[in-house]
Simulated scan of single mutants.
Amino acid sequence: MSQLELFKRDDKGVAGAVWWAGHWQCRNNNGFFQDREDGKGPWKFVIYGFGETDCTVYRVSEDGQLAHCRVPIDERNRILINGRRHGPESWRH
């Protein structure tokens, strides 16, 4: 799935926006990108890469474009997004 395929509509920059890209259901969760396959199961944050104490996740900018954002990750593999910790069941790489 290409970045252009993910971001064709103008309203993706609005928190709560939901759209489809192929068989992936996508959403803007308060500025952070999440998806789930075939619209089933839990929403997952998408991690682009890992550092020693942080990781890079996908964000949705106000103009609906895909962007990177570094967030902390702790020793229990929980990422910190908008003040909440999310374990590995809430993200994919």
Rank of each mutant, 00 (worst) to 15 (best):
F32L: 05
N30M: 10
Y58T: 00
E62M: 06
D54G: 11
G39R: 01
F45R: 03
E75G: 03
H23W: 10
R59L: 11
I47R: 09
D54W: 06
R59C: 12
G13I: 02
G49S: 15
G13S: 04
D63W: 06
K40C: 00
R70A: 14
P88Q: 07
G64M: 05
D11I: 02
F7C: 12
N30L: 12
Q34C: 08
Y58M: 01
V57E: 07
T53G: 10
G87E: 02
Y58L: 07
V57R: 00
D74C: 03
Q3A: 15
S2I: 06
R85G: 13
G64P: 02
V14H: 11
D10C: 00
T53E: 13
H86Q: 01
D10L: 07
G83Y: 12
T53F: 09
R76N: 15
R36P: 01
F33Y: 12
T56I: 15
E75F: 08
R70H: 15
R92D: 12
G31R: 03
N30P: 02
I81Q: 02
I73N: 03
G22H: 01
F45N: 05
I81A: 08
R70F: 09
V18W: 02
A67I: 07
R70W: 15
Q3T: 12
N29W: 14
Y58G: 01
Q65F: 09
V18L: 03
H86D: 04
G16H: 01
E89C: 11
I81Y: 07
V71W: 00
R70P: 11
W43P: 04
G41N: 03
L80I: 03
N28Y: 08
K44G: 00
V14T: 13
R27P: 04
V57D: 04
Q65M: 05
K12Q: 12
R92H: 11
R78W: 03
G83A: 09
N28V: 06
L66C: 13
Q65E: 11
E89D: 14
G49T: 14
G13W: 05
T53C: 08
W24E: 14
G51D: 11
N77W: 11
W19S: 03
K12I: 10
G31W: 03
W24Q: 14
K8E: 07
N82H: 07
R59M: 12
R70E: 13
H93I: 12
C26V: 01
D11K: 10
F32R: 09
W20H: 09
V57A: 00
G64C: 05
V57S: 06
E52S: 13
T56Y: 10
